[in-house]
Amino acid sequence: MTRGSRAFLVIISLILIISECIYGVPFLGGSFILSTGWQPLLINAFLYLVMAVYLLIDRQNTIRPMVIILFIGIIGSFLAIVPFLGMIIHWVLFFLMLFFMLVLLSAPLYVPNKHAKVIYTEHRRRK
């Protein structure tokens, strides 16, 4: 994982953690979601989808198995339409995203070797 991909995933993860925390508050989150016509749930599902696609496409990604959490987030965002069930789902997704963030921040970074081509060509010339 490169620094740019980690930064991208961290920013979206922070947005999702904050939104899941707000939506999980019993009356505040429910009234906000109902007053906006369940649109925040669709936005969350879209953000989970963007992160899942990015994890599946990235070649240097060491945390690819964590895409399961993102698929749970997509499904959970659609199941959270039910009021009381939605509150519990947002609590679960909040803790899953905290775990995802912990794994994301502990994943190793890929640092390319800028001199690899030079060393390889010098080695080939010596033979």
Rank of each mutant, 00 (worst) to 15 (best):
M1R: 12
M1Q: 07
M1W: 04
T2F: 04
T2S: 08
G4M: 11
V10E: 11
V10G: 11
I11A: 13
I12Q: 00
I12F: 00
I12P: 01
I15N: 00
L16C: 10
I17C: 05
I17K: 01
I18L: 03
I18K: 04
S19G: 13
S19I: 12
C21N: 02
C21R: 00
I22H: 14
I22V: 15
I22M: 15
I22P: 14
Y23T: 15
Y23K: 14
G24K: 11
P26C: 09
F27P: 15
F27K: 15
L28R: 15
S31C: 12
F32S: 15
F32A: 15
S35V: 09
W38P: 08
P40N: 10
P40G: 09
P40T: 07
P40Q: 06
L41I: 04
L41T: 04
L41K: 05
L42G: 15
I43T: 07
I43V: 13
N44E: 00
A45V: 08
A45T: 04
A45K: 07
A45E: 03
F46V: 06
L49E: 00
V50K: 02
V50A: 09
A52E: 11
V53S: 09
V53L: 12
Y54D: 11
L55Q: 10
L55R: 12
L56Y: 06
I57A: 10
I57E: 11
R59A: 08
R59C: 05
Q60R: 12
Q60K: 13
N61Y: 03
N61H: 05
I63E: 03
I63V: 09
R64E: 06
P65C: 01
P65R: 00
V67L: 08
V67G: 08
V67I: 08
I68Y: 09
I72N: 02
G73T: 01
I74T: 05
G76N: 05
S77E: 01
S77P: 09
S77R: 13
A80H: 07
A80I: 04
A80R: 06
I81S: 13
I81K: 14
I81A: 13
I81M: 14
P83M: 15
L85D: 04
G86K: 12
G86P: 14
M87C: 05
I88H: 07
I89M: 08
I89H: 08
I89Q: 07
H90A: 11
H90V: 11
W91S: 04
W91D: 01
W91R: 06
V92L: 15
L93H: 06
F95H: 03
L96W: 03
M97D: 00
L98I: 13
F99V: 12
F100K: 01
F100I: 04
M101N: 02
M101T: 04
M101K: 01
L102G: 05
L102S: 03
V103H: 01
V103E: 06
L104R: 06
L104P: 02
A107Y: 00
A107D: 05
A107P: 01
L109T: 10
Y110T: 12
Y110M: 13
V111M: 13
V111E: 14
V111L: 13
P112H: 14
N113I: 10
K114E: 13
K114F: 10
A116P: 10
A116C: 07
A116G: 02
A116Y: 12
K117Q: 05
V118C: 00
V118K: 03
V118A: 00
Y120I: 00
T121A: 02
E122G: 08
R124C: 04
R124L: 07
R125M: 09
R125Q: 06
K127S: 04
